[in-house]
Amino acid sequence: MNLKFSQKKGALVVTMLGELDHHSAERVRIKIDNKIDELGVKNLILDFSGVNFMDSSGIGVVIGRFRKVSEWGGKVAIVNLASPVKKVFELGGLFKIIKEYRDIDEAVLNL
């Protein structure tokens, strides 16, 4: 899985490209955490537009990042979910704690 980082209105935007499973999750969490620390950002937008497969490992990745940014009062938004990805998150009850937005712009406005 490849990650692209950008910043929008002070939030770190992470665009993920590829498949998010147990194999790729470890590198994804390390790379995102390092970037959060390096830039000292509070809010995180996880862009799933390029994720064509995800299993329950993805739930752990999102909740783990949520816990990290919450320590400093930050928020996490998830955007551009394809239906199979959304189905896994729904099953995990993720939307009870993390908000989903249609796209990056909508997330930036609401964070």
């Binding site: 999750a25 329950s56 490992s57 752990g60 783990g64 896994v88 099953l91 995990g92």
Partner: peptide
């Protein structure tokens, strides 16, 4: 400690 969600079997069942 592995940041697992504990949803594996639930996903399989569903």
């Amino acid at each position: 400690e592995l940041e697992r969600s504990g949803m594996g079997f639930t996903v399989m069942e569903t």
